[in-house]
């Protein structure tokens, strides 16, 4: 199997993503202070998903990987999302 070409990401881009991650961390804290009822968890998890998505795509270079690998990771994450979603479905309506 051939190695994928090594991709170098610029400091500007890395710094921008880092800044965005910090902002989203702030948003997570903000969400906990708002009175959203059970949707508070949904909000916090959505922000967490966006954050981990950024880390995987940029810092872990998934954005520059071949298609098959991206699909496999996507399927895995969707499966995890379904597991979490179904569990919340119970808690939400209890």
């Amino acid at each position: 199997m051939t190695e994928a070409p090594h991709h170098i990401i610029s400091y500007t881009k890395l710094t921008a993503v880092w800044g965005l991650l910090l902002l989203l961390t702030g948003a997570t804290i903000l969400v906990t202070r708002l009175d959203l009822g059970p949707y508070k968890i949904l909000g916090a998890l959505t922000i967490a998903c966006v954050k981990s998505g950024l880390v995987i795509a940029v810092f872990m270079h998934m954005k520059y990987e071949e298609r098959l690998l991206r699909i496999l990771l996507f399927v895995t994450l969707v499966t995890l999302a379904i597991f979490i979603g179904f569990t919340f479905f119970d808690v939400l309506y209890r």
Binding site: F86, F89, D90, V91, L92, Y93, R94
Partner: peptide, 11 residues
Amino acid sequence: SGMSDRAILVF
């Protein structure tokens, strides 16, 4: 086990 009725329906 005390799961919600709606979840019981879906499962």
